[in-house]
Design a protein around this nucleic acid. Structure first.
Lengths: 226, 226
DNA sequence: AACTGCTGTGACAAAGTCGTAACAGTGGAG
DNA sequence: CTCCACTGTTACGACTTTGTCACAGCAGTT
């Protein structure tokens, strides 16, 4: 079910949107009333679409938007900006910054529906399954890249496969034999330090998060859940 | 039969929920009216799902929830939070803390049914099976780790296997020969002090709970049930 | 009390495991 | 071709785990 995050400090608007959306399709709705909360929710729940009002207390909408785009976890979530009719400058700035759509209040329910559906349709195929997220880690299978707290870390393909194998089942210990088979295609029996070496290289690249990879002596390694 | 714990101080709500749930499926229901009782029941009976109202006398729902998550015995029990409609902050906090679902009162019976069934389906297969619990002990097969009253104790793989062999049938005496066969693969006849040595090391690591392992002179050892 | 068989304990050596550095082979990019 | 990042392998030190032994202590019996 698609998840939609609504960011607006006016309760009426939030309810109007909820009602409008829910009338025709099944969505999961999240709501935030201020920018900081919105950013937090966006990072943690990773909605499929964000409806972002530009008039917010404290942190204004454009700033929220920039923050969304600067963080790997939320970089690709489509955003529809909302604002009072006629504030042309904001509109221009917003679209310049890369907002995916823009709506002036008051908007018609039908229009809202259409825009949301539109974004959902075009947004999903690209990403979704190719990005795996766990805590501050975000693995992009296509780019073979790891984003850690927003900054990119290049991994070699072996390192990537290794990390992926562990991160796919966080908290579960992967036995040495299993990892060797999965990543290298070796049979279980083999006696080698290759695995250890690559674990070491991974830990180095993960920096302070290196200890997310835990050694389970006599068994293997496991990735700690966030 | 799945067990469900209802935590709410309003009798009406508890009854409403009971009636709703029992109408369609067979559940075993437990009830608690305050946080402390809820925690105790949760630890002792280990329900499959907990319905937790956030408005409770004395200890509030979020605190109860944190306590549930901090204790290895209840860490993985899915929780559905209940609260009066519109208390958005609580909802956000709850979900942030890792609540598995959330419902605003008043809720429709059908919705309740669906969410409970949903959680039951998805909760157990993944994680449940790897953790074995007995009294204050909680063995995590994945981490080869023992949680004793919430704090972690590292065990070597031999110690782990040994403890597991005994804890799987609490109260039943395991003969020396059986343990040697199970843990070490030795034949029964062998004469060795190895078993005793490892029992000793286990008792040491268990600290004050070391006497949960009882010697049955001339036969073997047994793990006392809580 | 003395005896006897079983258990607990501390010490130790052997085996096993892990992390690390160094090195060499490989293949692709320029 | 040359360079270089990537990879697998080896050697080695540090540390942990394990099994064994000798012996002290204990429980139940006589």
């Amino acid at each position: 079910m698609p998840t939609i995050l609504i960011v607006d400090d006016e309760k009426d608007i939030r309810e109007l949107i909820s009602v409008t959306l829910m009338r025709e399709e099944d969505y999961k709705l999240l709501e935030a009333m201020d920018g900081l909360t919105a950013l937090r929710i966006a990072r943690e729940r990773r909605p499929d679409v964000i409806l972002l009002d530009l008039m917010l207390p404290e942190m204004d909408g454009l700033t929220v938007f920039r923050n969304l785009r600067d963080d790997a976890r939320t970089k690709f979530i489509p955003v529809i900006m909302l604002t009072a009719r006629g504030r042309l400058e904001e509109k221009i700035t917003g679209l310049e910054l890369g907002a995916d759509d823009y709506m002036a209040k008051p908007f018609s329910p039908k229009e809202l529906m259409l825009r949301v559906r539109n974004l959902l349709r075009r947004a999903n195929p690209n990403r979704g399954s190719s990005v795996i997220v766990s805590g501050p880690f975000s693995l992009d299978k296509n780019a073979l890249r790891l984003d850690l707290e927003g900054s990119a870390i290049d991994l070699t393909s072996t390192e990537f496969k290794l990390l992926l194998s562990m991160i796919e089942s966080p908290g579960i210990t992967q036995e040495r034999g299993d990892l060797l088979k999965k990543v290298w295609g070796y049979s279980d029996l083999i006696q080698t330090r290759t695995l250890d070496t690559h674990i070491k290289r991974l830990r180095e690249k993960l920096g302070q998060h290196g200890n997310s990879i835990e050694t389970v002596r006599g068994v293997g390694y496991r990735f700690l859940e966030a």
